[in-house]
Design a protein around this nucleic acid. Structure first.
Lengths: 336, 336
DNA sequence: ATGCAGATTGCACTCCTGTGCATTATACTG
DNA sequence: CAGTATAATGCACAGGAGTGCAATCTGCAT
């Protein structure tokens, strides 16, 4: 059992000693806008380079009550949509000198302990991508001075920054995409996890269909995954009246749905079946799917989130900020 | 511009005051195996609960030179393979009381500044999933007491923990999978980024083919992406002699390759073309691809990495630890 | 009631950095 | 050269938590 060498990291004191200056001088050298002469700065930098010194951000955060850590709380990190989101967030956070801590809310005790981690590491902000954190925990985070940023939650705790995408409008448009090209036997494919955004998409679609005099069955199966989409297809196409148009509330569902429709029921898309998805994940652009869907402006959303991290209230007060999704026309819906 | 409330986080002192004990008592209450009477522990916990106190892990890390932060350095976070890896790592790290910091090596100054971040946040370990960090930076990390864990790097700095998968053996097996079913006109699809693991797969396949008297062209295009695989297919199938078997060094490449072969050249898989991939990403199991490939034991690798984080030298000394990939038989290779 | 071992508790120091304040060095003006 | 404004420097403290050491308390046997 080897002992870890004690005090392994270089401290500012050691740099100061080597450079023959006070520790304050070292500190000021690495602090933006502090007063140091060029001569000493140079000697400090030289000594730091030689020893391999790096400012201890943990201690720095201790001082100014600002850790520059942002926690991203999420489940299903390996889902394409989340992956893209995390990529954009980490990249943009780093660009403004912050760093992302990923808190996996899937494992074990779930979101509750996830939010606890957020507090323990004194994150400046928590970005909750999935899961429904307890109201009380959120309040706890906010009262501790954290910015809490959530996506598409209905019930908002005072102080939470909420972000919406145009779920309802897009879902309505999805209906018209299908209706316009003559689909009359429609269906909605969704999961049993009642995320507000998924619910909104489902309901808006159904309502718009009813307004046009169409009754739309909703298939709710499992989690928001490829397999759920596949299972939904098996269920729908075993019925006597097969749908000729489907709105999958998520591209991932759509992939599973399309695959089973084609492979197991020999249905051709878009001739016999038109499909519309949501999110525009990478796979939707792949030739095997070529899925007509709605693009979420992930880069923009991430940019806005980053701007909220510093505790600005945002240009909209308590109102959730709205982002517009835009339709991406591909080949899973036949031309008119 | 609203001021952030000062001293927003609750400190142990405040809990101590409320509970009417010394700060030491609070500290001991939250420290494993410290001596506190049940009476005071209870009062402390009660006060902590009331105030919403959480131990400051940053300050704790300052004391015992152990932040419990592990940095995962990676590019292409949104690529399926990386996503799965990050999911497993974050989950398993959290299970042992550590936390993952994602350092995006794609953006801007790249891996160099990524590794700097690792040091600035005093991470206990750095796990480098992609990119080729400079030798000197790695040395810097190690001399600072970090565990540096890399995947499939040839040139190893003393002290680095290296992890290998059985690239060569699997690539050889890939050849025989194709050869056995009668493919004679083979090709290798890879990218221009000369990652050691990708190179190993490519070379082992080519060598094994030569041993059987076959000459195999290698197509090297762009990054390791869907688009590169697609481009490779366009290049290969425009030639006069079309391949009837292909080894894509990555499943993602294989997806693009298969899609273009089918959609643009009307080639049926596996009748006219057999394809073998590597990684076993989620999409390989999707019906549209049903790709025969090699599964990387991600959970096992992640578990081993987590065990290395604490600075144990591992059961193998400087030798890289080897993990075996296992073939996943699906339908992209025809039966014999 | 006394003695003693063991369990609790609090003091004070440590970790590393940022910063207000007082002090000293430098530059500039007349 | 004197006088003053300004820059540079160092001291000392703060911030939140862990821990060795000494002091106190508890319980038990005598």
């Amino acid at each position: 059992m080897k002992q870890r060498p004690e005090r392994s990291f270089i401290s500012a004191q050691q740099v100061a000693d080597l450079a023959g200056v006070s520790r304050s001088a070292v500190s000021r050298t690495f602090t933006e806008g502090a007063s140091v002469s060029d001569a000493t700065r140079k000697r400090v930098l030289q000594a730091a380079e030689k020893l391999g010194y790096h400012v201890n951000h943990l201690a720095r955060g201790l001082m100014n009550d600002r850790s520059n850590i942002v926690c991203i709380v999420t489940a299903d990190i390996d889902a394409p949509y989340h992956g893209q989101f995390i990529e954009a967030l980490t990249r943009q956070l780093q660009a403004v000198g912050k760093v992302a801590m990923i808190v996996n809310a899937s494992g074990g005790s779930g979101i509750e302990s996830a939010m606890r981690l957020t507090l323990q590491y004194r994150a400046d902000a928590s970005i909750v991508l999935s899961g429904q954190p307890d109201r009380q925990i959120i309040e706890n985070c906010i009262s501790n001075g954290q910015s809490v940023i959530v996506v598409n939650r209905d019930e908002t705790v005072a102080g939470t920054k909420n972000i919406n995408v145009s779920n309802r409008a897009s879902a309505r448009e999805a209906f018209h995409m299908l209706h316009r090209v003559g689909c009359t036997n429609l269906a909605v494919v969704t999961s049993t996890v009642g995320t507000p955004s998924l619910l909104a998409r489902e309901r808006a679609f159904v309502e718009e269909a009813q307004r046009a005099g169409l009754d739309v069955p909703v298939v709710r199966i499992g989690s928001t995954s490829y397999e759920s989409g596949a299972a939904a297809a098996r269920q729908l196409f075993c019925r006597t009246s097969r749908p000729d148009g489907a709105f999958c509330v998520t591209d991932l569902l759509a992939c599973g749905f399309m695959d089973v429709a084609r492979e197991e029921f020999d249905i051709s898309i878009p001739q016999e079946l038109c499909v519309v998805g949501f999110d525009n994940i990478m796979q939707s652009g792949w030739a095997a799917y070529d899925l007509t869907t709605f693009r979420q402006p992930i880069e923009d959303i991430a940019a806005y989130m980053v701007s909220l991290v510093d505790g600005d209230t945002g240009d909209v007060g308590e109102q959730p900020k709205r982002f517009l999704t835009e339709p991406v026309w591909r080949k899973s819906v036949r031309p008119k």
